[in-house]
């Protein structure tokens, strides 16, 4: 990475297991780059302010709000977006439990929950609550989301 004066920079990213090269502004957020440079529009802009969680992706093994992260910061990490999930159990659970309506917050919720399940396969109610408070769903009353998460956790 060689910064020139306010110029664009070339950046290598590992997204969904693929090596991608993009030319970006250092001020571009990861969300900007995913959506506008890589066409990965599954991560949703909801506030660009880290408040709603709709743009959540997994960086390394942690959920991250891609609007709160510069793309350059993701350079040394594996990034997984909703497009990179392949029949993860939580996706089917969201369908079966009716855990979404308009679907706009869904990719962010699913990525957050997917990271949660991997990290804490037996997460208790408090942990689930702590993690899921990071995302806003405006359509459901959260009960269906809760059921979907529970159905994917070990007892």
């Amino acid at each position: 990475m060689h910064p020139s004066s306010y110029g664009k920079i070339g950046l290598h990213l590992n997204i969904n297991g693929e090596e991608r090269t993009v030319t970006i502004r250092p001020a571009d957020t990861l969300l900007d780059v995913l959506r506008e440079h890589l066409g990965l529009t599954g991560s949703k802009p909801g506030c660009l302010n880290g408040d709603c969680g709709a743009c959540t992706v997994i960086v390394g093994d942690l959920p991250m709000k891609s609007c709160l992260m510069l793309a350059v910061e993701a350079a040394d990490h594996q990034v997984i977006t909703i497009e990179g999930l392949n029949h993860a159990p939580i996706q089917q659970a969201f369908i079966e439990k009716f855990a979404f309506q308009c679907g706009y917050c869904t990719p962010g919720f699913i990525m957050n929950v997917h990271a949660l399940i991997n990290r804490h396969p037996q997460a208790d109610c408090e942990t689930v609550k702590e993690w899921l408070k990071s995302n806003i769903c405006r359509c459901t009353g959260y009960t269906e989301i809760e059921e979907a998460v529970r159905s994917c956790l070990l007892p």
Binding site: T41, G42, E83, F94, F100, T106
Partner: peptide, 15 residues
């Protein structure tokens, strides 16, 4: 299930 459900859980749904 919703007809558009698979699109909505995979990020394929377009807004």
């Amino acid at each position: 299930y919703r007809k558009e459900a698979p699109d909505k859980v995979t990020g394929a749904a377009k807004y």
